[in-house]
Design a protein around this nucleic acid. Structure first.
Lengths: 203, 203
DNA sequence: CCCGTAAACGGACTGCGGTCCGATTGGGGG
DNA sequence: CCCCCAATCGGACCGCAGTCCGTTTACGGG
């Protein structure tokens, strides 16, 4: 969920110490039920009780496994997050290695906005369920570290670590949601954000 | 709360249509009790029930008046918000009128960070109590409009309205809180943010 | 001074996210 | 094949934010 090592994805690769068969069955049931209910009724109006009922498990099982509603959302997002992380590590330029840092930064923002466009509701659930949740999620750490590395290379005179945090702020799902609710189209947001980032990382 | 017209501040100037005396008394009691409890026990661990009990009013009264826990926080912040709004409108340059737009933008970010330093917990409560709360609060609209006006003047080639939203994102109280929890000092955040803004609004 | 009414009051109530702990069950060792 | 125990299960339970509605009260007009 948070790193890219193989065992980091609880959905695709349960850890070797073997998961009991009923546990595995219930995990899949829960994820399927949650996906189904979220798609049908919208993320906001589906309660954890209902997910548990639909999955045919007890509430305790649901919470032991995913910790919170935000954790459940994070698990559902994990596939997409991991895919983007792998693309950053292995894809051809400009998103992957061997491109100038400035290009990789812009490509990252562009790719992340795709992810936002496709998963806004789930992102919002995972980031706003509890205060500070966004900054504790594993994938946030990945984006931050990647961006800081690129910034260090592209703009040695900036405080890369701190700037990385600040530059990620406009990607906040709650802001992106608010903008889309208002008069702003995804394309307009994308264009403006990329322009802004360009100016920050210009010589 | 949202504008600067005299009757916009529910604390300092109740609207002329006369407020019943018991209502006024209870409003003051609630605000005093909330301030006291927040200062003593921290914002997070004070429940609305407790505030109502401490103020000697029913829960219904509390919610009819302030709408939500976030609304209560907004009321407590109103004094500070209004003060900054007035300073922006009437103070001498560079924060007030008659300074170059670029200088006013930087002065605004600097002044807002002072407000953050002094009221982080309340800001966080008002902005994270419900998804999207930050962008519905009246004062957010003020900052956004002001910044957009200045941007239009300073950088005519930018999409001022959209850029204003994106530039305000790093001021999100939840991010500011997370940064301060981590390795970042207020001064470091301030310096980095001002540098970032400078780059965005550079020629 | 009293009375009618519109407004304010307040606590019981709901549904939520999240916790706890006794009951249940899977699966390796004897 | 059975037994045991650690891991899992599941629903009763908690405190919370927020709602509802019958009751009380302020106050302007008669």
């Amino acid at each position: 969920m948070q790193h890219v090592s193989p065992d980091s994805c609880p959905l695709a690769a349960p850890e070797p110490p073997s998961e009991r068969s009923d546990a595995a069955r219930n995990r899949l049931r829960i994820l399927a039920a949650a996906q189904e209910l979220f798609d049908t009724h919208g993320v906001e109006s589906v309660s954890m009780d209902r997910i548990a009922a639909e999955a045919g498990v007890g509430k305790g099982t649901l919470f032991r496994r995913f910790g919170s509603k935000a954790g459940l959302a994070a698990a559902l997002l994990d596939t997409q997050d991991s895919r983007l992380q792998e693309r950053i590590l292995f894809d051809p330029p400009p998103l992957g290695p061997d491109a100038p840092a400035r290009d990789r930064i812009l490509a990252f923002f562009d790719a992340y906005l795709d992810l936002v466009d496709d998963n806004l509701e789930l992102l919002r659930l995972s980031e706003t369920a509890a205060p500070g949740a966004r900054y504790r999620i594993g994938s946030y750490g990945f984006w931050r570290v990647h961006l800081a590395l690129m910034l260090r290379e592209a703009c040695p005179d900036l405080d890369a670590d701190c700037t990385a945090h600040l530059l990620l702020a406009p990607l906040d799902s709650d802001l992106q949601h608010a903008l889309r609710q208002g008069q702003f189209t995804p394309d307009r947001i994308r264009g403006t954000l990329l322009t802004l980032v360009k100016r920050v990382i210009a010589d």
